[in-house]
Design a protein around this nucleic acid. Structure first.
Length: 348
DNA sequence: AACACGGGGCT
DNA sequence: AGCCCAGTGTT
C-alpha cells in the first residue's frame, strides 16, 4: 500500500512492530546513553553528538564529556575554548557551541532540568524535530514520533518497497511514521529505539543484512525483488578535498591545537604549505593577497574546490582566498575571535 | 525546498 | 573516489 496519507496503522503494521521489538530485545547495543544510570541531560548530549556523527565515534567523546561536565550547569560555565577542544573531530563544531548555549538555557529558564514538552525542547538551541522527539522518548519514556535517517530507510523499504527514501524528509513520511507509532508511551519509546537500531545494524544503507532481518518476510522492498534506488542520479556527493569546508575544518583544528592566539602565517602554512616561503622569495609566485586580512569578496561556497595547477600562482591565490572565507565564516559563527593584533583564537 | 555545515571509515 | 552517518538553522 502506498504511503500517501496519515492512514491508521494496519494489522501488518502491528506485526512489523512486534517483530522488530522482539528482535530489539535480543540485539540492542549496550550504549552508555541507554544505561539505567543515564540522565535526561546525558541523553540530550548524546543526541546532539549523534547528529550526523556515527555511534562509534560519539561513544568515547560522550563518556569523557559527561565525566567532565555531568550537569547542564557544568557545561554552561565552562570555557568555550575548552568545550570546542573537547568536541575535537566530531565535526560540525557549531553543534558544540549550541550545546553550551542549550545548557545555559536549561539552567536559566528550566532550573537546570531538561524540559519535558516538545515545544520547550524545540526552543532549545540545536534541538530540532528529531532531537526533541528523541529526548521525549529516550530520556522521559514518552510517546514521540522519532524519525532519523535509519527509520526513514526502514520504512522506505519495509512499507514503501523502495531501496532508499527521497533525499529530503517528506510530509508523507512523517504521516506514515506517526501512524506507525504505538499509542502507549512505553511501547512508542521502545519502537523508536528498535526501529532506529534495525536501520543501524541490519537494514543498513550500503549492504543490508536481509538474511538476519526479523521482518524480511514482510518487507515490501524484498517482495519487489530489491529494486535499485530510484533517486540514484539525483543524489549529490559533496566534495571534500580542497573545499572551503575542508579549509574551515583545518583552521579549527589549528586553533584547537594551539594554546593561545594563532598568527595568520600559521594558518596560511596549515592550508597552503610552502606559501610563506614563496612569499619570502619575493618571486613572481608570491601572491599580493598574502598579507591581506580583509573579509571575503565572494560568497561562501562548498563546491569551490581549489582550481589551477599545483604550485601555480592561481592555485595559491585560490587557497588564500578560501582561507579568508573560512576565517570570516568562523568569526561570523562565533567559533573564532580575532585579537587586536589580528591573531585568531577560540572564543572564551 | 535548497544550502551550508566536518570528518572518518568502509566499499 | 564515492557513499554514508541518531540533523539543525538559515535563506
Amino acid at each position: 500500500m502506498p504511503v500517501t496519507s496519515s492512514s491508521p496503522a494496519t494489522a501488518g503494521h502491528a506485526v512489523l512492530r512486534a517483530a522488530v521489538a522482539d528482535w530489539f530485545a535480543r540485539a540492542a547495543r549496550d550504549l552508555p546513553w541507554r544505561a539505567s544510570d543515564r540522565s535526561p541531560w546525558g541523553v540530550l548530549v548524546s543526541e546532539v553528538m549523534l547528529q550526523q556523527t556515527p555511534v562509534v565515534r560519539v561513544e568515547p567523546a560522550w563518556r569523557s564529556w559527561m565525566e567532565r561536565w555531568p550537569e547542564p550547569a557544568d557545561l554552561a560555565r565552562a570555557d568555550t575554548a575548552e568545550v570546542l577542544r573537547a568536541w575535537g573531530r566530531l565535526g560540525y563544531p557549531r553543534r558544540a557551541l549550541r550545546l553550551q548555549e542549550c545548557a545555559a538555557v536549561v539552567v536559566d529558564r528550566h532550573d537546570g532540568v531538561v524540559p519535558r514538552t516538545e515545544d520547550e525542547l524545540r526552543a532549545l538551541p540545536g534541538v530540532g524535530e528529531y532531537t526533541a522527539a528523541a529526548v521525549l522518548a529516550f530520556a522521559y519514556g514518552r510517546r514521540a514520533v522519532v524519525v532519523d535517517t535509519n527509520v526513514r530507510r526502514v520504512l522506505a523499504r519495509t512499507i514503501d518497497g523502495v531501496a532508499l527514501p527521497a533525499p529530503s524528509y517528506t510530509a508523507a513520511e512523517r504521516a506514515l511514521a506517526t501512524a506507525l507509532t504505538p499509542a502507549d508511551d512505553a511501547d512508542a519509546a521502545r519502537w523508536a529505539a528498535a526501529s532506529m537500531e534495525l536501520g543501524a545494524l541490519v537494514c543498513t544503507a550500503r549492504a543490508p543484512r536481509c538474511d538476519a532481518c526479523p521482518v524480511a518476510e514482510l518487507c515490501a522492498w524484498r517482495a519487489a525483488g530489491s529494486p535499485p534506488d530510484e533517486h540514484a542520479g539525483r543524489r549529490r556527493t559533496q566534495a571534500w578535498h580542497g573545499t572551503d569546508r575542508q579549509c574551515r575544518g583545518r583552521v579549527m583544528a589549528t586553533l584547537r591545537e594551539a594554546d593561545g592566539p594563532v598568527d595568520r602565517s600559521a594558518l596560511v602554512e596549515a592550508w597552503v604549505p610552502g606559501a610563506t616561503s614563496m612569499a619570502d622569495d619575493g618571486g613572481p609566485t608570491a601572491p599580493a593577497t598574502l598579507a591581506g586580512t580583509g573579509g571575503p569578496a565572494t560568497p561562501r561556497s562548498t563546491t569551490g574546490a581549489a582550481g589551477g595547477h599545483p604550485g601555480t600562482r592561481s592555485d595559491v591565490a585560490t587557497r588564500l582566498a578560501q582561507l579568508d572565507r573560512a576565517i570570516a565564516g568562523l568569526i561570523e559563527d562565533g567559533l573564532a575571535e580575532q585579537d587586536s593584533a589580528g591573531r585568531l583564537h577560540l572564543p572564551s
